[in-house]
Design a binder for these strands. Structure first.
Lengths: 341, 341
DNA sequence: CTGAAAGCGCTTACAG
DNA sequence: CTGAAAGCGCTTACAG
């Protein structure tokens, strides 16, 4: 015997919809929707009934329908230069975790330090009408900048700070960090301090500015070794050789990233050059492995995990329309003086 | 003087819609939709007119509307255990790039090697009705497995191979790789070969199986050092000490990952233990930095970039409903014998 | 090869 | 505090 009466009408897709939940709970779909989203102003007993219906029916909201109706998705776009720099992995991990807990999904985009690539990614991802945006630094194409502002999507900048109208950022002063390490080397008595950098992204150049500022009159442009190639162990080894060849009188080398410095340390070992006795070495970022080196690498610890967390929190507040009292958060840095200088 | 006749009706959002494009091109919305998606069976001149209209109006399709109407998004979910292992970064980079070129966006999820976390991510991301899925390996909760199959979303498995009904995978034999490196060590005359592993994820255990198989009768369980802690330089150094302390007669140590092996090499340097004269060291994965070590690290090169690329291509074919003749692609591996053994 | 109709599943105003 | 109506922007059958 078949069902005596027609069961309540099902959608063609067979999906359990908000409509079904509403019917089961004995309320209108709008009330069900409001109850579901935790909108206040719904009677407690109705909320209860809706929640029960959701559980019984195994209802799962459809993000696409939600996005279409509300013109807003639950996705957040995270744009970083590289995944192969552990720095950004730590940043992403913290941000993604925080966002997920607040109910946001993250779309990770990798720009490979190419402004054009960032612009293209922005264009692509903005189509989704993301709820929020996390981008690295402030250097981008004008088009990218106007895409950002024109979209009206809340946006927090990572790694650097910049005050300005409607600008939100969580980071630290790359310049101060560059200056502080250079100063620390000077305080230890090093006289001929080289700066060796790869990639030459905006933040690296800011560190270079800090290096110069610390040296002041004693700055010697011949001690700056800038290589636009990507940072790596192998390049660090090469640059170490280059510095010693071109400026045999250096007594310290400040590398703009730990992988370079670690590569240099290995090269010193290979060549039998004593660190820090013959030449001191310092790095930047406190990446994994630095304290395992021989000697342990002195470096600047950068708070990328904290940046990811704090930036995500700030963005969540913005997405919820809450007030953000501190739009420009400086999380500082820390000098880690170990054995290499 | 105002416009003589009512301009064509605009949506409240002010958004340029497919409707607008259709009007401008003088076709129906359906035809515009078909032209846009490159569906064949649309007259060439109409396609042309639609494309012109799209360009002139600056039309951007709405993924949410598309997803709602078609019950399918253009997003692909990529699930990996960790971002801090460079292996997976290479994998993701290749896959993401390939997918993007084909018009798919990727949602990266990190499971931290926790099956429960993978299950939760799957549940969350499946709500989006992704077009495809890329997951790591075959070990997951039963629920996760049925979520996968129940969703009906095309799925390709990464890193391992398994034949089976409707199973797609791109990887290599972890067991064979473990066996091959062990055999290579035996061929070089090493007698007491230890296996030192961290994380103890499924693929690591498969390598252990290969290690045992290669040794056969000569396998000594006391030479297996398994530590469930995450892999790192520091742990590699610790394990190196532990192996030498517990089994002073070992003449070779096969680490399940390069970071462990690199940490061990640094520890050997620190302790003045000669590699490979006193003890040989081998790693796995050929991560960055291995060839910079002293001595350069012997390891197994794993084709993760190729896996990411090939898996993405396979998934793209599946998502397009094309036939995939080879559902189980073994990309092999390569022994890299450098100075450490 | 092209189109009119209906619908995807939700939320936004607007009422009451 | 609750709801009926309309609409978000697209695509899927179904015709012709």
């Amino acid at each position: 015997m078949s069902q005596p009466s027609a069961p309540k009408r099902r959608r063609a897709t067979g999906r359990v919809t908000l409509q079904d939940v509403a019917v089961a709970a004995g309320v209108s779909p709008i009330t069900a929707s409001r109850a579901l989203r935790g909108e206040r102003g719904v009677a407690a007993d109705l909320v209860e009934r809706v929640q029960v219906a959701v559980r019984e029916l195994g209802y799962v909201p459809d993000p696409a329908a939600r996005a279409l109706a509300s013109a807003k998705s639950n996705q957040v776009v995270l744009l970083v230069p590289l995944l192969s720099n552990a720095l950004f992995v730590d940043l992403l991990d913290a941000a993604q975790r925080t966002l997920l807990q607040a109910g946001y999904q993250s779309m990770i985009g990798v720009t490979h330090y190419q402004p054009e690539e960032e612009e293209a990614l922005l264009r692509t991802y903005l189509m989704n009408r993301p709820a929020g945006l996390l981008v690295t630094g402030f250097d981008r194409t004008d088009t990218a900048r106007s895409l950002l502002t024109g979209s009206g999507v809340p946006c927090v900048h990572l790694m650097e700070n910049r005050a300005g109208d409607g600008l939100y950022s969580v980071g630290f002063s790359q310049e101060d960090a560059g200056r502080a390490m250079t100063q620390a080397l000077m305080d230890k008595g090093y006289q001929r301090i080289a700066f060796a950098a790869a990639q030459l992204d905006p933040r690296t150049l800011q560190r270079a500015t800090g290096y110069r500022a610390a040296l002041g009159d004693r700055h010697d442009p011949r001690l700056e070794f800038m290589d636009a190639a990507p940072s790596s162990f192998a390049l660090g080894a090469q640059m170490f050789d280059r510095v010693l060849a071109d400026a045999p009188d250096v007594d310290a080398i400040f590398f703009n990233n730990d992988d370079l410095a670690q590569g240099a340390l290995l090269q010193a070992l290979r060549r039998g050059i004593e660190v820090p006795a013959q030449v001191a070495v310092a790095g930047f970022n406190d990446l994994i492995g630095g304290e395992q080196m021989l000697p342990p690498l002195s470096t600047v610890r950068t708070p990328r995990g904290e940046i990811g967390l704090k930036a995500a929190e700030m963005l969540i507040a913005l997405m919820r329309g809450e007030a953000v009292e501190q739009p420009c958060v400086d999380l500082g840095f820390e000098l880690l003086m170990r054995g290499s200088c």
